[in-house]
Amino acid sequence: MVEVHLWSGLRSLTGGQQVVEVEAKTTGELLRELVRAHPQLQGPIDAGVSIAIDGRVIASGLTETIPEGSEVYLMQRLRGG
């Protein structure tokens, strides 16, 4: 099980939960399971998110492994310019 900390803008889409748990071994599985558990997250995820695993931001790539016991955050994708 992976505990995913959500940025504040997503919490209203998960019934106010700050942390949700999903079964996932990769970043792609994580996003799929989040949408399966909370379908209303589909729009924000499609719009672009970043996943931070133990402080390292994974901006793209759905095959990144999530080590057991990792600290995982789902964040709004930061865009530079």
Rank of each mutant, 00 (worst) to 15 (best):
G43A: 15
R77I: 07
G16V: 03
Q17D: 08
G48S: 07
R79M: 10
L30C: 04
W7Q: 06
S70I: 05
S12W: 03
A47G: 13
L13E: 00
I66K: 03
V49A: 07
V22W: 00
G80T: 09
S50I: 02
G28C: 05
H38C: 06
R36I: 04
A52F: 03
T26A: 10
G61I: 09
I53K: 10
Q42V: 12
E3C: 00
Q40I: 01
Q76G: 07
E64A: 15
L74I: 00
G61L: 11
R11V: 02
G16R: 02
G43D: 14
S12A: 10
V49Y: 04
E33C: 08
W7D: 07
I66G: 05
S60H: 14
S12Q: 10
R32E: 15
I66F: 06
I58C: 15
G15M: 00
V2Q: 11
R11K: 14
V57Q: 12
V22P: 00
G80W: 08
L62R: 13
I53E: 09
D46W: 11
W7C: 06
G48N: 07
P39Y: 10
Q18P: 08
L34S: 03
P39M: 12
W7I: 05
G55Y: 05
Y73P: 01
P44C: 09
Y73N: 12
G28F: 05
V19E: 04
E29Q: 15
V4R: 02
G61H: 12
R32Q: 15
H5P: 01
T27E: 10
E68K: 11
P67D: 06
S12K: 14
A37P: 03
V2E: 05
G28D: 04
E68L: 12
L41R: 12
A24M: 05
L31Q: 04
T26R: 08
E23H: 11
A47V: 09
G15P: 00
G69L: 12
A47Y: 09
L74A: 02
Q17K: 15
E29R: 08
V57I: 15
L78M: 14
G28Y: 04
T14N: 02
S12L: 06
G28L: 04
L6W: 00
M1Q: 13
W7K: 04
R11C: 05
V72G: 01
M1G: 14
V57T: 14
Q40W: 04
E21A: 09
L78G: 07
E3V: 02
A24P: 05
L30W: 01
D46T: 13
G69P: 12
L31E: 03
R11P: 04
G43V: 13
S8G: 09
D54Q: 09
G9I: 01
Q18C: 07
R79V: 10
T65W: 10
L74P: 01
Q40E: 14
G15H: 01
T14R: 02
G15R: 00
A24R: 02
G61Q: 12
V20K: 01
A47P: 07
E29H: 10
E29T: 09
G9P: 00
Q42P: 09
V35E: 12
E29P: 08
T26I: 08
G48Q: 07
V22G: 02
T65L: 15
L13N: 00
L34K: 02
R79G: 14
V35D: 06
I53F: 11
E23Y: 08
